[in-house]
Design a protein around this nucleic acid. Structure first.
Length: 568
RNA sequence: GCUUGUGUGGCUCAAUGGCAGAGCAGCUCACUUGUAAUGAGCAGGUUGUCGGUUCGAUUCCGACCACAAGCUCCA
């Protein structure tokens, strides 16, 4: 977003606040910035706004825009500034938080004045094309312990055409929504009966299993071995790992013969036991143990979102055990693996370094060291990243890799966590060259993150038209009439024998209809078989993206598919 | 969990304080088709659940459940 658009939207948010102040004189103003999609303003009001209220507010905003108030900046010394906002407790708090010596600026338009750093457009008449989109709850300073505010979202543009393009883009994005495509393509779904517990159907399982086959191939190449640990483990283990103390609110519990057990929310404690099954030599390190672990976490009901945030998911987890000297190269190895796998799908990703949270384990000095190691690795690999303070795991800082969905919402997928704590809790050891026992360092990491979330992202990324390798159905055979059914069965059998995922649509329907259905199902190839093809022993190939590709021998077509598969 | 909204056949959506309707999908029949929807017929519903108001509730009210958007949280 350029500066001019930002200023326009910021001014729109002031006009919003002015309109609300006119209609609800008791409303207290919090903050109102321009954002990627538009702008918002947070208000402390008696009753949260309903859609009807928003219409009235929007109408008042139009009046303010028509009145073309000059938007004027002025600065005040602290005392006077506080006096200006004496009836606005949130503004007072903002002013008090400003460092001494910082200029305190206000913007005035008509009867309305707001504390603001700017910049703005020169008068309210500039804000012609705008729309309020929703009202939701937000917390003062983003903290759930604080006052609940009513946040009004809107968007603004310079021209009607831009606004229309924005709304059209939102409609287009809605068509790629994985929740919609999951149902339409018969891949996966969520039901009332299992909030946050997704179902995968046969076609969804093919996608999932192909993804896993690719994952296993890449991990084998990267020197990983695979394990599996139990879903349910004794309560005592979770006390030892620190999860009980730091993660209890998110855990599910059960009893077996009167003793307490935990449904695992993470795979690491089980992984630790797998490491401890025998003694390790420094010559064997690093050990890279991967696990496709199903974890259950009690996420807040309001946080659930399709496959993106669920209560039961499969992590493509791995725990790497190493000597301190091996840390940098192992971190780099993970960063490279993530990059290699994401590139295959053409993903752009964002990287964050998440540091020590409020609820943490161990010594601050250890944390500082770990954070520095991660940061050094990012710098060494010239990775662009931003710091996300306080968002680390309770046992260590992490590097997170975020992907975006069709609406631009960002979801954490890969993660790389450096952990000095768990090896301590579990007294992990290896024998060094000196013959003595040493404590290994460990890395927790995922690449896909959650298989479910990744499939959600993948579905939206490709709008359901998955690459051949991941398509649940790769080719569909479409006989023109009943008399071509036998030849069609031969072609279908040949495709299946060659290992391709094929379907046969021998219904007595018009070819246009069958093609339409195959197209809607985003099947990569359609093979139309009529008299000509039967006579010549060929197949007429249509691709979902390129239309009619003409006739070719069936073996030629299969060779073409093989070549396409070899790309990944 | 919080705020606002939504909930009608498998899917997409109408309608109304007084017998709940359409398209798609499904089933049956006819058509034998050349690159994005052939026609006809049949079947499919305790209008999310539980209460309340009412002669009568799918419609109004309340609680609960689920979903959507956002906040919080996180893979």
């Amino acid at each position: 977003m350029d500066d001019q658009l930002r200023a326009l939207r910021h001014s729109a948010s002031h006009i919003l606040a002015q309109a609300v102040t006119r209609l609800y004189p008791d409303a207290k103003l919090a903050i109102g910035p321009a954002i990627e999609q538009g702008f918002y303003y947070d208000f402390d009001v008696e009753k949260p706004f309903t859609p009807e209220d928003l219409e009235a507010i929007e109408a008042e905003m139009k009046v303010i825009a028509r009145e073309r108030y000059r938007i004027e900046r002025f600065e005040l010394p602290r005392e006077q500034a506080l006096e200006t906002v004496r009836s606005q407790p949130y503004k007072r708090e903002l002013i008090c938080a400003l460092p001494e010596g910082e200029p305190i600026s206000f913007y005035k338009q008509g009867e309305f004045t707001d504390l603001c750093a700017g910049p703005h457009v020169d008068h309210t008449g500039r804000v012609k094309v705008f729309k309020l989109t929703s009202a939701t709850a937000a917390y003062w300073r983003g903290d759930a312990r604080n006052q609940t505010l009513c946040r009004v979202y809107g968007t603004a543009f310079f021209t009607k055409e831009e606004l229309q393009a924005h709304l059209t883009a939102l409609e287009e994005a809605a068509k790629r929504d994985h929740r919609k495509l999951g149902r339409e393509l018969d891949l996966f779904a969520l039901y009332d009966e299992g909030p946050g517990f997704p179902f995968f159907f046969p076609k969804g399982m093919i996608l999932r299993n192909e993804l896993l086959a690719f994952w296993r191939q890449e991990h084998k190449r990267a020197g990983y071995e695979e394990i599996s640990t139990p879903l349910i483990l004794r309560e005592e283990l979770w006390h030892r790992s620190g999860h009980w103390e730091h993660y209890k609110d998110n855990m599910y519990f059960t009893n077996i013969d009167d003793s307490g057990f935990v449904i695992k929310p993470m795979n690491c404690p089980g992984g630790m036991l797998a490491y401890k099954r025998r003694m390790w030599s420094y010559r064997e390190l690093p050990v890279r143990m991967a696990e496709l672990g199903v974890v259950h976490r009690h996420e807040l009901s309001g946080a659930l979102h399709g496959l993106m945030r669920v209560r039961s998911f499969t992590q493509d987890d791995a725990h790497l055990y190493m000597t301190p000297e091996q840390i940098p190269s192992e971190i780099v190895g993970v960063i490279e693996l993530v990059d290699r796998i994401y590139k295959v799908f053409g993903f752009e990703y964002r990287v964050e370094l998440s540091t020590r949270p409020e609820s943490y384990m161990g010594e601050i000095a250890t944390w500082d060291k770990a954070e520095r190691i991660l940061e050094d690795a990012l710098i060494a690999k010239s990775v662009n990243y931003r710091v996300n303070p306080g968002d680390g795991a309770f046992y260590g800082p992490k590097i997170d890799f975020h992907l975006v969905d069709s609406l631009g919402r960002s979801w954490q997928c890969a993660t790389l966590q450096l952990d000095f704590q768990m090896p301590e809790c579990f007294e992990l050891e290896y024998i060094g060259p000196d013959g003595a026992a040493h404590r290994p360092v460990m890395i927790h990491r995922t690449v896909l993150g959650s298989l479910e979330r990744f499939i959600g992202i993948l579905t939206e990324h490709y709008a359901g038209a998955f690459p051949l390798r991941f398509s649940p159905v790769q080719a569909i055979v479409l006989p023109l009439t009943d008399r071509h059914a036998e030849y069609a069965r031969d072609v279908f059998a040949a495709l299946q024998d060659a290992g391709f995922r094929a379907e046969l649509d021998a219904r007595s329907e018009k070819i246009g209809y069958k093609i339409r259905q195959a197209q809607v199902q985003k099947i990569p190839y359609m093979l139309v078989l009529g008299d000509k093809e039967e006579e010549n022993g060929t197949v007429a190939v249509r691709s979902r993206s390129g239309g009619d590709l003409g006739a070719m021998k069936c073996c030629e077509f299969m060779e073409k598919m093989r070549q396409e598969l070899n790309i990944t």
